[in-house]
Simulated scan of single mutants.
Amino acid sequence: MLPVFLYLGGPSLKWMEVCVHTNHEAVEAISNLLIELGADGVSIEDSEVLTRNWTNQYGEIIDLNPDDYPAEGVRIKTYLPEMVSGDEFISQVKTGLLNMKELGLDVGLAEVTGREVDEEDWANEWKQYYKPIRVTEKLTIKPFWEEYIPTSETEQIIELDPGMAFGTGTHPTTTLSMKLMQKYLNPNCTVVDVGCGSGILSIAAVKLGAKQALALDLDPIAVKSASENVELNNVQEIVQVREGDLLKGMGERTDVVVANILAEIIVLFTHDLPRVLVPGGIFIGSGIIEEKAGLVIQSLKTNGLQVLETVHQDGWVAIAAKKW
C-alpha cells in the first residue's frame, strides 16, 4: 500500500506528526483508531511497495525512494495542529493499542512516536506518487487530476480523489477483489459492498456492468468519502451509499456481496449471507491475511456456502464463494 492520505483540516504554522509502526494486519484498525481519536487524516507508508515487481506499462509509479518507507511493516502517520496536545493524543493511542492486543489483534511492534514539524505542503506533495493504475483488463484507477486516455473500448476508468481515503488499487486486497469481481459479476446484477471505505468496489461493480450497488459502512467519514467518489464517477443514480453495520437489518436480497475488510470482521456476518444472497449468489471476500484464510473458509462452509476459488498475492487472500 502506498502513502494514503485523508486530509480534512486547514493549515497551521506547526504540526505534531504522530507515527505508529505496525504490521499489515492492523493497518485498518489503527487508522480507524486515529480518526476516532480526532485525527483529521492518516498517511500509510508500506514497506511492501519496495519489493514489488512494478512495471511501467500503465505508468503506475516511478522513482520510489526507500527513505520514504520503513524497512519492514507499515508506518501510519497523522498530523495534529499545534493547538492539540500531542502528548495526550499519543497516550490515547497507546491505550487503544493495548485494547486491541487484549482483543487478540496482532498489532506488531506498535511503536508510537511523535515529533514537531514545520508547516509544509505535505497535504499535496504526495501526489507525485500516484498515476493511473491498470488493475485488471477492464478496470483502471485514475487520480482525478491526472490525464489518461483509455487504451481500449472495454477499459473502464474509476476516478478517485486521494483527499478522500484514497485506495490506489495497488494494494493486493483491492487488486484481488477486482479480479474476482471481473470474473464472477454477471451483467445487470445487484451488488452490496460491506465496509465500502472509499467506495472503490461499488464503483468498480457498476463499471463492470452491475445495474445497482449498495455501499455500506459504519464510519460516517467513509460514507462521506464514498458518496463523493460516487458523484465523481457520475454513478450516483445506481450506487447508493448509506451507513450500515455489516449486513444487519438488510431485508432485500442481492446477487453479489463483496467485502474487503479484516477476516475477523467477515466471519461476523457470514451467517447473514444465506439470507441476503439470492440462490446462486456470489460472495467475494478480501482483506484476509493468509494465516486467517482458513478461518473465513470454515465460516463460509459452516453457513452453507461453497468455496469456488481462493487467490493469493503477497501474503493476502481473496475468496469467492457461492450460495446454492
Rank of each mutant, 00 (worst) to 15 (best):
Y69P: 01
Y69C: 10
P70G: 04
P70C: 06
P70L: 09
A71D: 15
A71H: 14
E72T: 11
E72Y: 11
G73E: 08
G73R: 08
V74Q: 10
V74Y: 00
R75I: 09
R75P: 01
I76M: 07
K77Q: 09
K77L: 07
T78Y: 07
T78P: 06
T78W: 08
T78L: 11
Y79H: 10
Y79T: 09
L80N: 04
P81H: 11
P81D: 06
P81C: 10
P81R: 04
P81W: 05
M83L: 13
M83I: 12
M83H: 12
V84R: 00
V84E: 00
V84H: 04
S85V: 09
S85F: 13
S85G: 00
G86F: 06
G86K: 01
D87M: 10
D87R: 00
E88Q: 14
F89L: 03
F89K: 02
I90N: 07
I90E: 11
I90F: 09
S91E: 14
V93T: 03
V93C: 01
K94H: 09
T95N: 02
T95E: 13
T95C: 08
T95H: 06
G96R: 01
G96T: 05
G96S: 03
G96N: 03
L97V: 06
L97R: 02
L97S: 01
L97H: 01
L97C: 07
L98C: 12
N99G: 00
N99K: 14
K101V: 14
K101S: 12
E102N: 11
G104A: 00
L105T: 02
L105M: 13
L105Y: 07
L105P: 01
L105F: 09
D106K: 11
D106E: 10
V107E: 04
V107P: 07
G108P: 11
L109G: 11
L109S: 15
A110I: 03
A110T: 05
A110R: 07
E111K: 15
E111Q: 15
E111I: 13
V112K: 00
T113Y: 02
T113F: 04
G114D: 04
R115Y: 12
R115S: 00
R115A: 15
E116Q: 14
